[in-house]
Design a protein around this nucleic acid. Structure first.
Ligand SMILES: [Mn+2]
Ligand SMILES: [Mn+2]
Ligand SMILES: [Mn+2]
Ligand SMILES: [Mn+2]
Lengths: 221, 221
DNA sequence: TATTTTTTTTAGATTTGTCTAAATTTATTT
DNA sequence: AAATAAATTTAGACAAATCTAAAAAAAATA
């Protein structure tokens, strides 16, 4: 497999994440995601098309082809393994690791990642509950649903969090919610969609719909 | 402390290593060390002088000032901590870690290095026996001497290896010599300066002067 | 000291990744 | 279907890091 620049890898990864929800991606959304100009995106699209990582016709949107997806999965794999390392081995809070993994994911040694994965015990999910692709790009799946649609009085366990900004993660920490936390939804307020929830050894509390929409869970046992 | 580019950091580190033996450094030696052209070196020297990291008058050689040395020590510290991690935690052979640490040393987070150091148990020496500067740039010292000048029949322990190319390290592995190996010099051949040595549980063997000159030891107990 | 050699710097290009402003294409409204 | 608005691309510029070839300065030698 060829080597790509840090910049190329960042674009490829962003396209990968965007095309999961929308199939074909457009210039402006990528520019927004990357916090850069639309012109810069167009420049990079030409480069990635030349390198045969992208399906792209001008003005028509674009998407990664199979090669591009493989590259993206490799970067995602590295990113999430490093995040796991930072939290589980170095004791970082889970809301601090993203920017550091954003740099570490570009270290090029394959041997390093092979050994890192083994050292970490081949984890399947990163500290945010996101799946870690294996060496072949295969992603583990679990049946999860959004906390906002969980029926009352069912015990569920938090398996991932969609919005991973420090702001969101800070908030969840305040509620004592993390990956693996067991939750029972005790009330649902129709007025604003907020939820009353109960966490073991914590007083009941109210979550806004906005928060609940970003928390994903699976049913217990 | 400001941030520097990967390229700047690599130049600063090379100058630091060169000026240890020669006080003032010249353009061609740095170009050789960095495997680049003299013109590129001159370009970078102007940049580093502008950033006030360097004493430099054209045609007159150059050296890092105190600020520059601090930056260099920070990079060296990161490089050696990562090498220690790669060998002690990930199980890499010591002759494989240098190029990977060459990338990892540029990851910018200070918090990361603080935690990595703690995770590793604040080691004082890297896998090649080179000292790891502490957070303030202070370097631990040990009294060491070159294996080629060790008197006969004294028990000494290998503390560092000067030439760290894969070729040299491969060779030392073949002789079962590593950091911490106990050695007794049993004969010294005047003809070519080669040494007969004895390592515990190994048959006697002969080291060329070229190898011995690169191995540093300290007296036992 | 004059000449030659070596070292170092400058001049001018090139590549990568970025930008702003203008032009073009596509989409949405009247 | 025009007109307007939005999205996208192109044109042209710039900074960083590199290069080669030529010029200039310093060092070594005759
Ligand atoms: Mn990144
Ligand atoms: Mn994550
Ligand atoms: Mn480096
Ligand atoms: Mn080392």
């Amino acid at each position: 497999m060829l080597n790509y620049t840090t910049s190329e890898e960042n674009y490829i990864k962003s396209i990968y994440h965007l095309q999961k929800d929308s199939d074909t991606v457009n210039t402006n959304s990528l520019a927004a995601e990357m916090q850069t100009s639309a012109a810069s995106v167009t420049d990079m699209l030409k480069k990635l098309k030349n390198k045969k990582l992208l399906q792209y016709e001008r003005y028509r949107g674009f998407k990664l082809n199979e090669t591009g997806k493989k590259v993206a999965l490799g970067v995602v794999r590295k990113h999430r393994l490093w995040e796991y390392f930072l939290v589980e081995k170095l004791g970082f809070d889970w809301d601090k690791v993203h920017p550091i993994a954003e740099e570490l994911e570009h270290i090029s040694s394959d041997e390093l990642i092979k050994r890192l994965e083994h050292f970490l015990g081949s984890p399947s999910f990163d500290p945010h509950g996101d799946p870690i692709p294996d060496r072949n790009g295969k992603i583990p799946v679990i049946k999860q649903l959004c906390l906002s649609v969980v029926p009352l009085k069912h015990s569920v366990t938090v398996s991932s969090v969609a919005n991973q900004t420090p702001q969101m993660l800070e908030m969840l920490k305040h509620y004592h919610i993390g990956i693996g936390t067991t939750i029972i939804v005790t009330r649902h307020f129709e007025f604003d969609g907020s939820l009353e929830i109960k966490i073991l050894r914590q007083p009941s509390c109210i979550l806004s719909e906005q928060v609940a929409k970003n928390v994903f869970v699976h049913y217990d046992q």
